[in-house]
């Protein structure tokens, strides 16, 4: 796997006696989009947080381009600059304007030229349809707009890989689409992405590969068509059925 950008090698994560991730291994190639799905509490968010070393791992190794990602290591802030992350909760800094939210890390951490970053930020904001909101404060934005800003903020650091942790889970349904569209656009540009989501149709549309996680283990790993049309394991079938059931009920409610 010489061309793997990110390698997860047999990682174990425990909270006390509780094993959350139990020997997870996979790798992500450049420009690959991987969607991680699984029932709530299966450890998918924890997995993303471990990749960014927001959570320490008890065993195993995570490497980005051959460099080990370790909590409390001196090189961690440098490695984190190469990994963009967008969270479920709106995590913009409330005391800064949209533009300053985006500029903070590139200017202070990467010490890049402010004007240059500003230009880049404005063109990215334009791309996600928020150019006129540059001077607004986060509290003046809707949830969907905040998440789009958070994505731009991550992009401005020029990350090699992007992690999305259920970015639409806290949004009103009508806001979900605008955020997912931005992510689809990023996939088209050939960005390397690792996405945790509950939006199955979106997962199918965007993913090169689906990883199905249950009880802290990878139960199935397949292309989206294989996974959604012919899941090999019983657990994946059960999991997908819960969504089918949901969608039938939703349709009935619409019909009434």
């Amino acid at each position: 796997m010489a061309d793997a950008l990110l390698t997860i090698d047999n990682i174990v994560k425990r909270f006390g006696d509780n094993t959350i991730l139990d020997g997870i291994s996979f790798s992500v190639k450049k420009s690959e989009v991987i969607v991680i799905v699984g029932p709530s509490g299966c450890g998918k968010s924890t997995l993303l947080r471990c990749i960014n070393a927001l959570e320490p791992i008890q065993d195993g190794k995570i490497t980005l381009d051959g460099e080990v990602i370790e909590r409390n290591s001196k090189t961690l802030p440098l490695l984190r600059q190469r990994i963009g992350m967008v969270f479920q909760s709106y995590d913009l800094f409330p005391h800064l304007t949209v533009l300053d939210n985006i500029l903070l890390a590139p200017c202070k951490v990467q010490k890049r030229d402010k004007e240059e970053v500003k230009q880049e930020a404005m063109s990215l904001l334009e791309r996600v349809g928020l150019k006129e909101k540059a001077k607004s404060y986060p509290r003046e934005l809707s949830g969907g707009q905040k998440q789009r800003v958070a994505i731009v903020r991550a992009l401005c650091m020029h990350p090699e890989i992007l992690l999305f942790d259920e970015v639409t889970a806290a949004l009103d349904p009508e806001m979900v689409r605008e955020v997912l569209d931005v992510m689809l656009d990023l996939a088209k540009q050939g960005r390397t992405m690792l996405i945790v989501t509950h939006e199955m149709q979106f997962a199918r549309a965007i993913a090169d590969r689906i990883i199905f996680l249950d009880n802290g283990k990878i139960v199935e790993e397949a292309t989206p068509d294989e996974f959604f049309d012919n899941p090999k394991t019983e657990r994946a079938k059960q999991f997908l059925n819960t969504f089918e059931f949901d969608s039938v009920r939703a349709k009935k409610e619409l019909a009434e």
């Binding site: 802030p77 984190r80 600059q81 992350m85 969270f87 995590d91 913009l92 890390a105 951490v109 650091m157």
Partner: peptide, 10 residues
């Protein structure tokens, strides 16, 4: 707020 700062490499 701490986590997103950390994630940005601060």
């Amino acid at each position: 707020q701490y986590e997103s700062s950390e994630a940005l490499g601060l």
